[in-house]
Design a binder for these strands. Structure first.
Length: 425
DNA sequence: TCTGGGGTCCTAGGACCC
DNA sequence: TCTGGGGTCCTAGGACCC
């Protein structure tokens, strides 16, 4: 049996746990750059605030309804996520960390106390130990567990737990949802299925898997089997090494200034390298991209340059230099840019990376230097030591490209100086 | 004025190999 | 004159996920 457990309004709840004064008040969390709504408390949903809505478009509604707004605080969410996952590890025989707020658990045999009772025990413990509320869906395949979770939160009489434990329960569950509610089916697949005359989830389960494969590929075929209770999507207990690492941002305002964009590219490359080293990987290939404002009426341009690095590396200096060089290939001064990014590809473990005869740089020395830089930045804050060509964020008064983050809460659980204070009377 | 960021998997086609 | 069969690697694009 599989369970899919995820936190309700995860980011919004994380914020509220440390602000009990906001209980029962509408809370929203914004994406990077304070762009879109990415999380809403129950009360905010009830006000009709949609997911993914640009913040500026619903600002009037937010102000009128006294909604509390937060910028993303990923440091806090990552730490709360670790607490959630560590609790869940006590319950499953096998466990897969699926996303920042979701886990699959797996049991080979029946639960002695019954699935519903077990689910309740999990939800209660998470609530008591972290303050997070979770939804628990249980079923014979990952897709059915996901479906159960959907019903646990959004079904009729939803109470946070939904067990799909029998043939009849599968049928009832499928009858209660739409095609698009099924894991792996989004707009494109829904339209293709409808063209085949399949409008309802129950019809999809009954469809011929080979026929579905012809039209939706092997991905679609697996969904059919999964809905029939035949498990095709394996539990992934070991988190695989990343294949790509990307760092990209939209700018606070558009710019045509090459030096400014190069600063951004070098900074993104540096940040991507920090992620790379944290995972003990090296990159063999690098892409840089720049983009004009997609929402503007002016002429659009998107530049993209991908090339091999001379040898796989995690050295910020080499990668940043290569990024700046790549940027020069695609930069065109007549456009005003809104976004840039750096993508590291062909990643492999540092320990098994192929070396080269032709680059005369001592990798051990490079590693020592980078490790020292990373440690200093960890202790004293990001950017304490950086390349001279990277952006001196503190000295960037025009805020052309660095992140907007006007409503960020304290990093309550990871910084001594930001610990929550309780005033004594 | 303001519209996010970071991933994975699959497929098809081209270039090449023996 | 005839022109198979079995592969790999790479890239781009499309679909999906959170």
């Amino acid at each position: 049996m599989f369970a899919l457990i995820d936190a309700n309004s995860f980011y919004a709840t994380c914020e509220r746990i440390f602000r009990p004064d906001l209980a029962n008040r509408p809370v929203v969390v914004l994406s990077n750059n304070d762009g879109c709504i990415v999380a809403r408390s129950k009360e905010a949903k009830a006000l009709g605030i949609d997911m993914q809505k640009p913040y500026f478009q619903i600002r009037h509604l937010i102000e009128r309804s006294n909604v509390e707004v937060f910028s993303s605080n990923y440091t806090l969410y990552a730490d709360m996520s670790e607490r959630l996952h560590s609790i869940l590890r006590d319950f499953g025989e096998r466990i897969e960390t699926y996303s920042i707020d979701e886990c699959f658990l797996f049991w080979k045999s029946q639960s002695p106390e019954g699935w519903w009772a077990l689910a309740k025990r999990i939800a209660d413990r998470v609530q008591q130990w972290t303050g997070l509320t979770v939804g628990v869906g249980i079923g014979e395949t990952k897709t059915l567990a996901k479906l159960g979770n959907h019903l646990a939160k959004r079904g009729k009489n939803a109470n946070g737990i939904h067990v799909i434990g029998s043939e009849q329960a599968v049928t009832a569950a499928l009858e209660a949802v739409e095609l698009g509610d099924i894991w792996g089916i989004s707009g494109g697949f829904t339209r293709r299925l409808q063209r085949l005359g399949i409008d309802k989830p129950i019809e999809l389960r009954q469809a011929n898997p080979h026929y579905i494969r012809q039209h939706l590929g092997v991905v679609g075929q697996k969904i059919v089997y999964e809905l029939r209770g035949i498990s095709c999507i394996e539990l992934e207990e070991i988190t695989a090494d990343k294949q790509n690492i990307c760092c990209s941002r939209s700018f606070g305002q558009v710019t045509s200034d090459f030096n400014m964009i190069r600063e951004a590219a070098v900074t993104f490359a540096s940040q991507a390298c920090v992620k790379l080293r944290r995972q003990k990987l090296v990159a063999g290939r690098l892409s840089v991209f720049i983009q004009t404002d997609r929402h503007s009426d002016s002429e659009q341009y998107g530049g993209w340059w991908a090339s091999r690095l001379l040898a796989p590396t995690d050295d910020t200096r080499l990668i940043a230099e290569h990024a700046a060089w790549s940027l020069r290939r695609i930069f065109r001064p007549e456009f005003r840019y809104k976004k840039a990014g750096v993508l590291l590809m062909n990643l492999c473990r540092r320990s098994v990376a192929q070396r080269t005869l032709f680059v005369h740089r001592n990798p051990e020395e490079s590693l020592r230097l980078m490790t020292a830089v990373d440690r200093i930045n960890e202790e004293h804050g990001r950017g304490t030591i950086r390349l001279a060509s990277a952006s001196p964020v503190a000295l960037n008064p025009c805020r052309t490209w660095h992140l907007r983050s006007d409503h960020r809460s304290p990093r309550y659980t990871t910084r001594w100086e930001e610990l929550p204070m309780i005033a004594a009377r």
